[in-house]
Design a protein around this nucleic acid. Sequence first.
DNA 1: AAAACGGGGTC
DNA 2: GACCCAGTTTT
Length: 345
Amino acid sequence: MTFSAKILRWYDANKRNLPWRSTVNPYNIWLSEIMLQQTRVAQGTPYYLKFVENFPTVKHLAAASEEEILKLWQGLGYYSRARNLHATAKIVTNQFDGQFPDTYKELLKLKGVGDYTASAIASISFNLPEPVVDGNVYRVLSRYFGVSLPINSTEGIKYFKTLAREVMNVKNIRDYNQGIMEFGAIQCVPSSPDCTICPLSASCVALRDDKVKELPVKIKKTKVRDRFFNYLVLLGGNDHSLLKQRTGKGIWQNLYEFPLIESEAAITNVDVQTELEQYGILDQKFEFYKFNEEVIVHKLSHQHLKTHFWIVTLEGDVPNGVSFQEIDKFPVPVLVADFIKTFKF
DNA sequence: AAAACGGGGTC
DNA sequence: GACCCAGTTTT
């Protein structure tokens, strides 16, 4: 039996029942694929269900506000996905009359749709013979064929794409592509796979050569920098606080947060007066204290955010503030959401 | 070619 | 702490 035939047989017997597997509608497939980029199925699934409930079609999604979409996306991370999702929904709705493109090449032009996602939609929705290469596929192919080329090198990316195309099942690409990914997610797992029950063990090069632990090879580039965040949580006499939208480059674009003082190193005190003046809050008496004595370290892939929240109580009002009741309606980073949950306005 | 971009799970 | 996850975009 061929490699792809074994994958198909394994998939038929072992596939999970996932919400987006009951349809091939390109809107649903696209939505699920964007959400699952660098995201585990278990984490993405509740978000997918929320989105299809709130936005049954791409037109509903296009008609929503970005803020509404970001709020529903809150906690899933990589927020450019949500912004690109909205932009693409508007293009599909307004320029393509609600119809998704049905070729790899045209799908690839959509914002947030790269090589993997274009192949996934083309094959799953339209049954086109395009191989998908995600993290699971890299692992399965590198082990089964014993390829030690780094999967995140330019040469490796090209090599694995070609290999994936050579071994794919053209007749049933829809199930094959999902099958090889599922196989990587369930059977050929990163750590300590149970090769004794693997249907590919008889011809797996990594198993034969005792290289399962070493494959796939990945060039590592972890460079984490520390940042020091001080959030000013304003408590006005009018039961309002202040949120600001993050703009420009960097993390959390278009999400909201409290007024932020960032410093190059840990600071023991903050200049509240100067900061308040920046927001047009003048001649007001205030008191403030550090909310968390122990620094909160919020960890992102490339940054450790060492954070203190400062509670600033004003005698007067907060102009242009957000009422305590409405504060939960804004899309905020998990770091801020966790604080709001703890603090109780 | 390398870096940036989140958050959560696992070992 | 290191690695990984149905990757893409920007630098």
